[in-house]
Design a protein around this nucleic acid. Structure first.
Ligand code: MN
Ligand code: MN
Ligand code: MN
Ligand code: MN
Lengths: 216, 216
DNA sequence: TAAGTTTTTTAGACTTGTCTAAAAATACAA
DNA sequence: TTGTATTTTTAGACAAGTCTAAAAAACTTA
């Protein structure tokens, strides 16, 4: 239906427009590691196909059709990531690049059966919600560790940074999805955070605290 | 490593060279539903990359590297077909087109783990052998029903025609992989074949008999 | 508001893979 | 062996997606 490239642009625009309103040419170029001029060319094409709302120099947003396509790509990506971790025993830091390829396999029937095969999982290995076959999903209402007060805590439920380096670090510290943590202290000098997990105390930097998401 | 198009050409050349020696430009064009001139262009490219032996007007054969790549694509294709049938409950006539896309997912680690996950299956849903991770597999030594003498028989073990229409016909007649059949009679008028399967007798046309493969 | 800076778009070129039409090589047959 | 038919290759063009360089628009900021 849509080319691999079109799908990647739609997904990029979707991701960028979750937090902001209109998305700029340069933002898309940065995310896709391409040049602004290439983006402009593609934007014209996507606008012609009624997948985005685009007026020159004004930035873009997805149309309803465009958003449906984007959510579907994300559904495919996250289901494959779940498959790779739960069925093929990959680690959570190993699956993103494979899923980047697999998300373009086009059969809807295939993805729906994969979903069923795995028992309709609600979240991918990184805690992100998996849209159902109608594109519906609950947006995660999570807070970074850095934003919760001392003496309170919650369950580790997601990450903001999806890089291998970060995921591997968390794995090593056993700061994985589902673990319960409490903020014991915030070091005023560098805003590092001291966590309690079980009967252990754990130091994490401000940077890590910003990228580790908690359900209260 | 190789583009989707290159992979498809290599697979086509491999399939065509199993039965003949050198493969002609027109044969490849027919199999890939493209034009001879496009094939010539690609042949030059594949020869530059040392994947095929090619002299103009002389036809082509795969180099050792080319054959390794081709066998690997076939491994991927057949493992995904097995997955679709055994894990996602697709029928054997529904999986080819999906596997055509999935065979291009590049990760070797992924395919090896998929293989392990499914218990290292020896054959795909159509009875074709699945190469192992080193590219080794036994070539099926099967005979079409039309080539075996009256009163002998064997186990249905493969098909020559992989079309949906043929596979669906076989399914309906319960002429599926693993069933034991005996040739009861050959009608001299049109060479149709009467089979015995269990306690039932079954008429099949010459055409069907040519495309249904038996292990003796 | 008038520069100056940044962002975005246009212009023109390149790559991959495709096509049609025409030329060259090969195969076949009288 | 000579002429015809077939196969294969070349020549030139096109679409998708990308790039660099330059122009145009929008934003800053004094
Ligand atoms: Mn991912
Ligand atoms: Mn994920
Ligand atoms: Mn197949
Ligand atoms: Mn098969």
């Amino acid at each position: 239906m849509y080319t691999l490239t079109e799908e990647n642009y739609l997904k990029a625009i979707y991701k960028l427009s979750v937090h902001t309103g209109n998305v700029s040419t340069n933002q898309i170029a940065a995310l896709l590691a391409t040049k602004a001029s290439s983006v402009t060319d593609m934007l014209r094409k996507l606008a012609d196909k009624l997948l985005i709302n685009y007026t020159r120099y004004q930035g873009v947003s997805l149309t309803q059709t465009g958003e449906k396509v984007a959510v579907n790509i994300i559904r495919r990506h996250r289901l494959w990531e779940y498959f790779l971790v739960e069925k093929l025993n990959f680690k959570w830091d190993e699956v993103h690049d494979m899923a980047e390829e697999m998300e373009h396999i086009s059969s809807t029937e295939l993805i729906d059966r994969l979903d069923e095969f795995m028992g309709f999982p609600a979240r991918d290995p990184h805690g992100d919600p998996i849209p159902d076959c109608n594109g519906n999903f609950k947006i995660n209402d999570l807070k970074p560790v850095s934003a919760i007060p001392v003496h309170s805590g919650g369950i580790i439920s997601g990450v903001r940074d999806h890089s291998s380096a970060f995921l591997q670090y968390l794995e090593k510290q056993e700061l994985t999805i589902g673990k319960k943590i409490t903020v014991k202290e915030i070091i005023s000098y560098d805003n590092a955070v001291v966590l309690q997990m079980g009967n252990k105390n754990l130091h994490i930097s401000r940077d890590v605290a910003n990228n580790l998401l908690i359900a209260l």
